[in-house]
């Protein structure tokens, strides 16, 4: 029955609503409606921002979010706030979840309503307080933006790692160098390698000046400078993050105390007292040539030989370091070597 279907089609087309919908294509408005929970691109309210960087640390997408600072003007300082790049944002809402301000700087769907005690922040740095160095001035307590992250318990200042957002404000406010430590917890193996490079090159540089050092008297101090360019280049080839490298350089130069043992064969009377005392077996007596030999590879720098020897064959010196100014580009390590104050002679 082809004829009847043709008539049916003509009849259908003749209906006004059909013809209209045929001519003007449109989609139902309901498709653009989104439910309440829909996570659109995050909204930023710059006025609440405390510039802690929690959002940038939490963001799983590499290009999505960054902190920017508006320019200073006459009345007030520039405001720092996060900017979302829609082309990189994956709309996970994690930045809104970790934001510690109240009210939230970033909102996203309903994710910013998630209870605060469940917010988890993946951090690159961990801040700990060294109780030995802490002077309990409580400046960090005032500087901390998050309530309950730094607390005082039994006259000790403690950082609660589950609440800490790793903003670093406490570190800036602390008047004692080293009392608060910001530890990079990522790239541990790479950090170890860099520390090895620094310590080895410092040791080599002191080894080169051995001649000068061995003539030092008890209250003389020997100073010289070391350029760090070569070390920095080698460190950069291991790890690309300049912040971490500078942090390692500063920590190493602040805390490292190199002990140096010198050996003056001419003074030796072959008494062999040191041979038995040496805990690592680094000192041996060679019968055929009648000399006492010291193996630098085995030496622990424990200073026992220095304290044992009645003739002053072994010399014992301590080297300390300072990176000044603290920068990778024009920093220089100042090295100070002086004789140890340990008592001499076996008692």
């Amino acid at each position: 029955m082809p004829m009847s279907s043709v008539i049916w089609y003509l009849y259908e087309f003749a209906r006004k609503s059909w013809a209209e919908s045929f001519a003007i294509a449109k989609t139902n408005p309901e498709i653009v409606e989104t439910p309440e929970r829909f996570r659109d691109f995050p909204q930023v309210f710059p006025e609440y921002c405390i510039a802690c960087g929690a959002c940038t640390a939490a963001c799983p997408a590499p290009n999505a979010i960054k902190l920017i600072r508006s320019e200073d003007n006459a009345e007030e300082e520039g405001q720092t706030y996060p900017v979302i790049n829609n082309r990189g944002c994956i709309r996970c809402g994690f930045c809104a979840e970790v934001c510690p301000t109240d009210p939230k700087t970033i909102t996203c769907g309903e994710n910013h309503l998630i209870r605060e005690d469940f917010t988890i922040l993946p951090t690159e740095r961990m801040f700990v307080i060294d109780d030995y160095l802490c002077i309990r001035c409580k400046k960090c307590l005032k500087a901390c933006q998050v309530e309950g992250a730094i607390t005082e318990e039994d006259n000790k200042i403690i950082i609660d790692q589950s609440k800490c957002i790793a903003c670093g404000n406490c570190l800036d406010s602390c008047p004692v160098k080293g009392a608060i430590k910001g530890i990079y917890i990522a790239h541990v193996q790479e950090q170890k390698d860099i520390i090895k490079i620094i310590v080895n090159s410092l040791e080599e540089s002191i080894e080169d000046k051995r001649e000068d050092i061995s003539h030092l008297s008890d209250d003389e101090v020997y100073k010289f400078d070391l350029n760090i360019d070569v070390m920095v280049d080698r460190a950069r080839s291991i790890l690309s993050d300049d912040d971490i490298i500078l942090d390692i350089f500063q920590k190493v130069t602040d805390r490292l105390k190199l002990r140096i043992v010198t050996w003056d064969d001419e003074k030796c009377n072959r008494c062999q007292l040191c041979v038995n005392e040496c805990p690592s077996g680094a000192i041996t007596y060679n019968k055929e040539e009648d000399v006492v030999e010291r193996d630098t590879e085995k030496c622990l720098r424990c200073s026992i030989c220095y304290q044992t020897c009645p003739f002053g064959v072994a010399g014992y010196y301590i080297a300390r370091f300072l990176l000044d100014p603290p920068s990778l580009d024009d920093g220089v390590i100042h090295i100070t070597v002086k004789a140890s104050q340990l008592p001499i002679g076996a008692d």
Binding site: A61, P62, I90
Partner: peptide
């Protein structure tokens, strides 16, 4: 999507 624009989470 974000992948052709910036590489999204994969561009690391």
């Amino acid at each position: 999507g974000n992948c052709p624009l910036t590489g999204d989470v994969f561009n690391q």
